[in-house]
Simulated scan of single mutants.
Amino acid sequence: MESGMFEDEFQNDGSFLHDEFEDGENFEDTENETSDATDDPKRQDLNGEVTERRMWAKQVPKLPVTEQIIVPFKGNQPVGTDIDGLLGQYLGRLASNHKLLPISFKKWPEVVKTYKDWVWEKHIKVKFWWEPIHEAAARTSFMMDMGKKWRENRIRLFHTKFDKTLSREENIRNPPLSIPPTEWAAFIDYRLEEDTMKKSKQNAANRAKLTITIPVALRN
């Protein structure tokens, strides 16, 4: 499905997204997670009072509306061992939520800005806090991270849910429960395009050629 089809349909304020995407939503677990990230982030309330308490990524959506998790920045990048795992896995949960960020777009840059803005405003800015001077850097950093995770999730989804023993039509008739049939069909068609399959094989070949050199200190 071409991005233009979405752009014509969804040029509005985001009201097409259902209320189920509000703060109380339980994001589905991403399939590559073996455990939920836990950190001890600093949080502040509306009065600026800072507290510190262990949290899991799955708890972020249920964070009280009066509290936000503090994200420290150094230059243009978020820093801090007390936030890295929590933030990264929460962004991964957003990126793999097919209702928030549909898989039917061919590339991350083609995902309509309306979707990205909704996620930014309703699921990130309300949960995390940073110095105002880092606003642009935060959006750039978080969106890049989500884009990478969105792409990885689509690859994983195809390899785990597409049955090579079945025909295209049979696979399309059997979408994962969380994905609308029309989106699943568009995604399958994209993955089966000759150019896409060629690139996928080349990427796999390139990964197979990679070697990792580990320096070892020897002592006589």
Rank of each mutant, 00 (worst) to 15 (best):
V71N: 09
A205K: 07
K149I: 01
K106G: 11
F73E: 02
D117M: 02
H18P: 07
E7G: 06
K209W: 10
K199W: 08
D29L: 07
L166M: 06
Q11A: 12
E169T: 03
V65R: 14
W120A: 00
Q11G: 06
E135F: 07
R156C: 09
K122Y: 07
G14R: 12
T160F: 11
R139P: 06
G24H: 06
L101Q: 09
E31T: 13
W129P: 06
A217N: 15
S3G: 14
T66F: 06
P78D: 15
E2V: 14
L94N: 03
K113C: 13
F142S: 14
K127S: 05
K107A: 12
F10W: 12
A186Q: 04
V126I: 07
D13N: 10
E25D: 02
E121G: 03
K201Y: 01
T213N: 13
L46G: 12
M144S: 15
D117Y: 09
K42D: 00
L86A: 00
L100C: 08
G85I: 00
V216W: 11
V216S: 05
P181H: 14
S35A: 13
N47I: 13
N206K: 12
N206P: 00
E7H: 14
R156V: 09
D8I: 08
I83D: 07
E33T: 03
Y190I: 06
I214F: 09
W108Y: 09
W150C: 04
L101G: 12
H159P: 15
R139V: 05
T211A: 13
E194N: 05
T114I: 05
I124H: 02
D45P: 11
I214E: 15
I188P: 03
T51G: 01
D82R: 11
L87D: 11
E194C: 00
K106F: 07
K99R: 14
K107P: 11
V79D: 13
I124R: 02
L101H: 01
P64Q: 15
P181A: 08
K127T: 05
Y190W: 07
R154S: 10
L210M: 04
I214V: 12
T160A: 15
N97R: 10
E9Q: 09
E135R: 11
L91S: 01
G48H: 09
V126E: 11
E135D: 12
D8E: 14
L17Y: 06
P132L: 08
K62M: 06
L94H: 10
I212E: 07
M1Q: 10
E28F: 04
D82H: 12
H159K: 08
G24T: 04
F6H: 06
I69K: 03
N32R: 14
Q89W: 01
R154W: 08
V112K: 06
R191E: 02
A217M: 09
E110D: 15
A185L: 05
E170V: 11
Y190Q: 05
P180C: 05
I155P: 04
L94Q: 15
T81I: 09
V60Y: 04
E169Q: 03
N32F: 13
G4H: 13
N12E: 15
I188K: 04
F10M: 06
